[in-house]
Computed example of a mutant assay.
Amino acid sequence: MIRSIALFALAGLVSFPVVAEETGPPWSMADAYHDADEMAAVRKAMLMHHGAMRQVSVMADRLELQSSDAGDALVWDGNGWYGGDVDKLWLKSEGTYSLETDAVEDAEVQALWSHAISPYFDLQGGIRYDLEPKGRTHAVLGLQGLAPYWFEVDAAAFLSSEGDLTARIETEYEVRLTQRLILQPRVEAEFAAQDIPDLETGSGLTSLDAGLRLRYEFVREFAPYIGVEWQGSFGGTADYLEAAGEETDRTAFVAGVRTWF
């Protein structure tokens, strides 16, 4: 009893430092013992090494030659981004250059701001500009990420400066046959909410591309591939092609390279 009374008396005489204010965040507790500016620099460095750092990535997902009954064409589909885990600036571009007509058939570029809305999906918004055809500008709202069972999904809706509403969805899946040999099924579908006579596009499902690509990763950043792809048009879009004497579906053999850094 005498020992307990002595301890309480000593506690009343000795003042202890306040560890942290109740209103401060948990990581500010060390400020009671160390210089606040030094601790702020330490916290910033720690965050940079645990998810807050800025990174950059550039990828040519498809850089390929397509050969079909309609002729040969060069196709590109690439993107690049800069940012962190939550927010990124994305640049995307894709298009087709016909070797038969020696001209660009279609080409577009997108500038998008991307914000993570879950561990697996980003919400994206920005603008798209069509270099060919017609040079239209679109507002873009999309969703990109990794669906259950490891399906990569990129879906977007486009509202053009002419008031036309269209949409596109792409999905890919990677089957690892070995550590370096990968089989990649890929499907891309495009839709239109209305007829667009200027672009010879009908409403509904306008086109569907479904293909298989087999690539070999000599290194992770460089992988040549070969494959086959079926390309079809539907509805009013198919009617426009038939009226022009063109095919509404075809099979193309592809050879290309996938690279990134």
Results as ranks from 00 to 15, higher is better:
Ile2Met: 13
Ile5Cys: 11
Ala11Asp: 10
Gly12Tyr: 10
Val14Asn: 09
Ser15Met: 12
Ser15Pro: 00
Pro17Trp: 02
Glu21Trp: 11
Gly24Ala: 15
Gly24Glu: 15
Pro25His: 06
Trp27Tyr: 15
Asp31Ala: 07
Ala40Arg: 12
Val42Met: 14
Val42Gln: 12
Val42Ser: 13
Lys44Met: 15
Lys44Gly: 14
Ala45Leu: 13
Gly51His: 07
Ala52Val: 15
Ala52Met: 15
Gln55Glu: 15
Arg62Cys: 08
Glu64Phe: 04
Leu65Phe: 15
Ser67Phe: 09
Ala70Glu: 11
Ala73Asn: 12
Asn79Glu: 12
Gly80Arg: 06
Val86Ala: 05
Lys88Val: 01
Leu89Glu: 11
Leu89Pro: 04
Ala103Met: 04
Asp106His: 13
Trp113His: 09
Ile117Leu: 02
Ser118Phe: 01
Pro119Lys: 12
Asp122Met: 02
Leu123His: 08
Ile127Pro: 01
Leu131His: 11
Glu132Cys: 09
Glu132Phe: 08
Glu132Gly: 01
Lys134Val: 14
Arg136Ala: 11
Arg136Phe: 11
Arg136Gly: 01
Leu141Phe: 08
Leu143Asn: 03
Gly145Gln: 01
Leu146Phe: 14
Ala147Gly: 08
Pro148Ala: 12
Trp150Gln: 07
Phe151Gln: 02
Asp154His: 03
Ala155Phe: 05
Ala156Thr: 05
Ser160Glu: 00
Glu162Met: 05
Thr171Cys: 07
Val175Lys: 04
Arg176Gly: 09
Thr178Met: 05
Arg180Val: 03
Ile182Ala: 06
Leu183Asn: 01
Gln184Thr: 07
Glu188His: 06
Ala189Phe: 08
Glu190Ile: 00
Ala193Ile: 00
Glu200Ala: 05
Glu200Phe: 08
Gly204Met: 03
Gly204Glu: 00
Thr206Val: 07
Asp209Leu: 07
Leu212Asn: 01
Leu214Pro: 00
Arg215Gly: 00
Ala223Pro: 01
Pro224Gln: 01
Gly232Lys: 00
Ser233Val: 12
Gly235Val: 02
Asp239Leu: 03
Leu241Gly: 04
Gly245Leu: 09
Thr251Pro: 11
Ala255Tyr: 03
Thr259Val: 13
